[in-house]
Amino acid sequence: MLPMIEVRNLTKHYGDKHAVNDISFTVEDGEILGFLGPNGAGKSTTMNMLTGYISSTSGQALINGVDILEDPIKAKSYIGYLPELPPLYLDMTVKGYLNYIFDLKKCKLPRKAHLNEVMTLTKITDVKERLIKNLSKGYKQRVGLAQALVGNPPVLILDEPTVGLDPKQILEIRTLIKKLGKNHTVILSSHILSEIQAVCDRIIIINHGVVAAHDTTDNLSRNVSTDHRIIARIEGPRDEIVKAMRNIEGIKYVKADMEREAGVYEYELEALPGSDIRRDLYEITREHDWPILSLRSAEMTLEDVFLKITMGEGIVIPNAEDIAEAKKGAEA
């Protein structure tokens, strides 16, 4: 079966500036893919190319097997798009606007039932008679989402759908996206990691217009969560402890954190990859009679991964081709 979205070597140059450089990925039917990256990384540019708003300099984007540049109208009819700024006409009522979108997309579904369904799903039924300009940011965002859902397109492309919402609304939208992911193919962009982590099956980290990492959410967290970072709570003189720990072989850095209890500090230790410092740590503390009150390995959060990758610190993460090869191997 064809993948719902297939992107091959997509590139966009603005003059000399490479906004997006050679991005390739596929999204299968019913999958939720997360685009992660700092502001200006090329997330929106990629989405704009996928939805046919701008053209690519080179490369191809296929939606349900249809090239967005070759048959834009057909390809666009498969997509529901929520741009970074929802395209709302402020002087229309919510109902009037959704009716307009219904006509614009030339939907064949039963109008009233479908629009009611969309409004119920996005919880905007109670504001349907109000002018969009009088709505709060959260409601505007939801009307934007509703607009993307009109016509029940198989692909949803959502550019930072939770931006500017309060925590409760964010949770609601996330739940909604998860629900939509059951019978839609979704691409979601965000610079909020927890969001991507909570919603997406797979993550693509984009930085400076290139794919910096591409893996399933679980793998991405697992691959980089190492056992060579330890957080220890030790009783004893702080400076001496730090000094002693610096002498452990294979240690990368030691950092003393705040005083947790009287005379007890928390220390963060990171070892070089491949070395295990836990036994040495035990030796030192035993020698000096500094009791370890707690010891835990610090899981690297996606936050750290993100920062490391986008700051250009090398983390070895299998890239897209390796995954594809591994998949091929598994299938064979």
């Binding site: 704009n48 109208i73 741009p83």
Partner: peptide, 14 residues
Amino acid sequence: KQKTEQGLLTAPVS
């Protein structure tokens, strides 16, 4: 100006 152009240009219309 209102950025609604994006909605028009990504809708399935010529």
